[in-house]
């Protein structure tokens, strides 16, 4: 099955709405390069800025990968300590900084799973975890949605879970995800497609009829 066309017209008219830089940070590449270069030579302000920028993204990634708040917290810190030690060895060899960083994150998860035999170990998310909503009702709804999504994500095959964690948890682009996982962009798109289909099936399976439009 194939189709003609594209979304160039949509991207061209752009402008008016908020751009989600968390998911598509490409426009910041130039500024980030300067920041990373400064950090590599030991500029602590630059290091702290990179930390601020990536900390929530690494945390979300860890949360999706481990499904466990405690592990996500420990691993997030571990990643930044590793980054701190490895930063001066980082080189711009066609690999964006984000892909490099999330490879370290990926390796940290793998080491953790081997170390603790923690693969698949789950515990409910902390009720105090902020979910970016305002009112208490919204917070409860968001918590339920997050719990459901996390549970469904845990049941994805490993490769799909990795892609979902990087794309939707860490907010990497397809190209960055491909770099981080050592796969091709096409492969990542295929895995992403399968993962969304599977997640939809799993989420729909949990809900009574009539909820379909919302999933």
């Amino acid at each position: 099955m194939g189709y003609d066309g594209g979304v160039a017209s949509l991207t061209a008219k752009g402008g008016g709405r908020r751009r989600d830089d968390r998911l598509y940070p490409g426009s910041e590449a130039q500024g980030e390069r300067l920041l990373v270069d400064a950090a590599r030579v030991g500029d602590e302000k630059a290091i702290a800025e990179l930390y601020n920028k990536y900390f929530p993204r690494v945390y979300r990634y860890m949360l999706v990968r481990t499904g466990n708040v405690g592990d996500a917290e420990d691993l997030t810190e571990e990643v930044f300590i590793r980054v701190l030690d490895a930063l001066e060895r980082f080189e711009w060899r066609e690999v964006p900084f984000s892909a490099w960083l999330f490879r370290i994150a990926h390796n940290a998860v793998v080491s953790h799973q081997r170390r603790d035999g923690a693969r698949g170990r789950v515990s409910p998310l902390s009720p105090s975890l902020p979910v970016g909503t305002q009112g208490p009702e919204e917070a409860v709804e968001a918590r339920l949605a997050l719990d459901e999504v996390m549970e469904a994500t845990r049941n994805l095959p490993e490769a799909q879970r990795k892609v979902i964690a990087l794309r939707f948890g860490a907010g990497l682009s397809v190209a960055e995800t491909a770099r981080a996982l050592g796969k091709s962009g096409g492969n990542v798109k295929v895995i992403q497609h399968k993962a969304i289909v599977k997640l939809r099936e799993m989420l729909l399976g949990k809900r009574p009829e009539g909820y379909e439009e919302k999933v």
Binding site: P56, Y59, S128, P130, A142, A145, E148, V149, I164, L203
Partner: peptide, 12 residues
């Protein structure tokens, strides 16, 4: 919905 669900921040 995935995107929204994952918009979760670490506790302060």
């Amino acid at each position: 919905n995935l995107q929204r669900a994952y918009e979760v921040d670490p506790s302060p």
